[in-house]
Amino acid sequence: MMEQTATAAALQIDGLCVSARIGDRSYKALDSVALSVERGEARGLVGESGSGKSLTLRAVMGLLPPNLEVTGGAIRFRGQDLLADGGKLLHSIRGTGISMVFQEPAVALNPVMKVGQQIVDGVAWRRGLGRRQAKELAAELLTQVGIKDPEHWANAYPHQLSGGMRQRVMIASAIASQPEIILCDEPTTALDVTIQAQILKLFKALKTDLGAGLLYVTHDLSVVAEFCDSLTVMYAGRTVEQSDDLAALIAAPAHPYTRALLAAVPRIRGPVRRLRGLASSAPPLTEREQTVAPPMVPIGPGRQVAPFTHEDERFFSRDDEA
């Protein structure tokens, strides 16, 4: 294992800017995004569609679509800038130091490869494992993600599994290389509530067992509230608020956008109240401010918020008052 700097977070994103080329102009898709994830920490990254939350994950993985490029900032893994040497470091880290779990396991898994083989494919090759050892590792990983009778299921093909099991397989292949950071892109959105609860429980266990850091992207605050330690909120390509203590942020949101986002979440407990919808989501890329985002300012221990001048009501939709 590599030497670890005492102060550097496992994953640190600093002032990350990503531009989209549309026609002959370029627009800011991500503007000065900043966040960090420690080992053993689960950080929720929350925002609406188009807020740039998934794009942030893609930038970390070096999986940006061809018309998008990183134009500034740094993505540090254990203190080393992944962007510095033209992507060479990123390439060696991808899938080993950092891995990713996608929303649609049905799409992300290879339909014609047995799941056991699929899980250990990369690792077995890298570590030079023999057939028997690879099989044992696959079974071990499947057990770790809570699949009973792993020897049987290792020989199954993805279409023979239920949605929940497929996502477990996805997770098993993500943890095969014992990564320090696991990026999760809405991995439970397509699942039933009871299955979702099981998967969230699994993530919680993996965080402790592996000591991995999780960056968990979703639009649903109640999902991250279930199991994340810390929270970052994104709006229109910018990080607007974050806290190392998720409960503290939810109890007392500082940014008006966070407040609006919270008011839209229906609750299982507490008094029933009318929800407050958000105003039409973030402006399209081409209509966003082209000024550089001012950095977030600290407002407490482990707590930052982007400066805001607009009044609260901007983010609330008007039609609900009618």
Binding site: I22, G23, D24, R25, P284, L285, T286
Partner: peptide, 8 residues
């Protein structure tokens, strides 16, 4: 104007 995938 610039052509954008967001314009409909």
């Amino acid at each position: 104007t610039a052509l954008s995938p967001f314009e409909s």
